[in-house]
Simulated scan of single mutants.
Amino acid sequence: MARISVLDDGVSLDEPTLIEGFPGVGLVGKIATDHLIDAHEMTHYANVHCDGLPPVAVYQEGEAAATTPVRLYADPANDLVALRSDVPVKPGAATEVAACLDSWFEDADLFPVFLSGLGREKDDSPPDLYGIATGNGGEALARTGVEAPSESGLVSGPTGAMLAAALEADRDAVGLVVESDPKFPDPEAARTLILDGIDPIAGTETPTDGLVEQATEIRSAKRQLAEQMRQATEESSQAEPLKMFQ
């Protein structure tokens, strides 16, 4: 049965910003949300039970309690919620998972920020960041100074399905698309997401030095998941150029 199981009823949120972190190209969404959770010492707020998610239990180093592979973390002081996912979502389940989460987004009066990587070979220049919006999400996007995409494209995977649900319901949401390494975890792109996109929208100040200083360790720790995503790109949340009609 699809549900969001709240673990801490004492957490008080008032129209929070939600940052979504399903694994995708460069694992940028996951790296960004994992870092937000650690940097802001966010509380494990809820477990996500959605039809379509892998029926597995996850355990953490140093903790005996098993939990779900997709979880929500909260920071009441910053009115911030982060979705952390330790697993990819199968292609056929993306719509089902999106519908499960979208109904909770509406009930909780959340403003979602969806994160995607756009595969680009790395060079010495900083990764470009683009923004798209649904509903009145453009008002929040305007606070960032992030430019509109420089080419036509589409967002796929669970992130694309959630953006499509927001579009259909005319619900306010923002999608951030950052150029990312197509083969390996990309902490630099995740840092760009946080500094230039998430912080201005959410009104947060997130220290990101660790993403640069620990880039090698981050890539090593997340390499296995990145390889899994690369071998099954249809499971990824990702942005890609739309060239079929051009």
Rank of each mutant, 00 (worst) to 15 (best):
M1R: 10
M1S: 06
G10D: 11
G10C: 07
E15I: 03
T17L: 00
L18C: 07
F22L: 14
F22D: 13
G24L: 14
L27M: 01
K30W: 05
K30T: 15
T33W: 06
D34H: 09
D34N: 13
D38H: 03
D38Q: 04
A39F: 04
M42K: 07
T43A: 02
H44G: 00
A46N: 09
D51C: 00
V56H: 09
E63R: 15
E63I: 15
P69T: 13
A82K: 02
S85K: 02
S85M: 03
P88T: 08
K90N: 11
A93G: 03
V97M: 05
V97Y: 13
A99M: 14
C100N: 03
L101C: 07
D102K: 01
S103F: 08
F105H: 02
A108Y: 03
L118M: 12
G119K: 08
K122W: 06
D123H: 05
S125H: 12
P127Q: 08
D128C: 06
G135R: 07
G135F: 06
G138A: 12
E139M: 01
A142L: 08
R143H: 12
R143S: 01
V146F: 02
E151I: 08
G153E: 04
G157I: 02
P158A: 15
M162C: 03
A164N: 12
A166N: 07
V174E: 14
L176T: 02
L176Y: 01
D181L: 05
F184H: 11
D186M: 09
D186V: 08
P187G: 13
E188Y: 14
A190Q: 10
T192I: 15
I198A: 07
D199S: 11
I201M: 07
I201P: 00
A202S: 12
G203T: 13
T206C: 07
G210P: 06
A215V: 11
E217A: 09
E217V: 03
I218E: 10
R219W: 11
Q228I: 07
R230S: 04
S236M: 12
Q238S: 10
A239I: 10
M244D: 14
